[in-house]
Amino acid sequence: MGGSNRARRWVVGVPTLWLVLLFLIPFLVVLKISFSVARLSIPPYAPLLVLRHGWPMLKVHLSSYAYLLTNPLYLRSYLYSLQVAAICTVLCLLIGYPMAYAIAHAGAWRNVLLMLIVLPFWTSFLLRVYAWIGLLQNNGLINHVLISLGLISHPLVMLQTDFSLYVGIVYSYLPFMILPLYSNLEKHDPALLEAASDLGARPFAAFLRITLPQSLPGIAAGSLLVFIPAVGEYVIPTLLGRTDQIMIGRVLSNEFFENRNWPLASAVAVVVLLMLVVPIVLLQRVERRELEAE
């Protein structure tokens, strides 16, 4: 669409300007505040630019970062968040891959099944996480069923454990794994598998050597779509997770709202972002390649 250049400039310019103002610049504000120190004032941090003898001077404090790195509480929280996100990503992949595969081979039922996968996504995320409290608590539905079947005599403690946290995250993020896997798997050429079978390959061997390698971009996209937001997850660990070990999203919110330590909360955010830069860049590369392949 050449021609009217003015219209083009508006179409590019307006959304770009919006995102620069409300997505990019906010991170710079966070970065700036992370180099300050907390103090009792409004706003509750020391200004970075101070006047000394009439000259503006930049006063950069690294104390928030030093505090983060030396206090094992924060380090443990970061590692725990990475571990939870990694485990949940693997679980989503193990559950989601066969599901996506089955949908891609479901013929006329494809669209209905896809809709069933997407539908929960349209109903409140918060309410669906809340539903698990009723299912997992000590006098909840699952314990009730297990006891009346005679499988256990005392209720299992499932709520506020790693188990309930994994269930909640896998449950909420599963569609994000299934959809990119499906859109990859449905493009595969069945002729390749037929050729492999004609040449005597067993179905499982054919799967390992043909389908699996071809679906790697889908696996990468799905895994990153689950892993990245799961690291900073706040709602699910608050409702379903352990009370003795909190994830980093909760640490950030506690530092900001409860301790009113804005520089420390900002430093926590900057470090999370630094950990996620590599996965985010990877994701953009995978998605760009997938789009261009179409």
Partner: peptide
């Protein structure tokens, strides 16, 4: 533009929320 339209989808919400409030 491409980067800024894909990043918000995966950005942990606590970070987006904090940065918007500080802005």
């Amino acid at each position: 533009l491409l980067g800024m339209t894909t990043a918000p989808i995966v950005m942990p919400e606590v970070i987006s929320g904090l940065s918007l409030l500080l802005l």
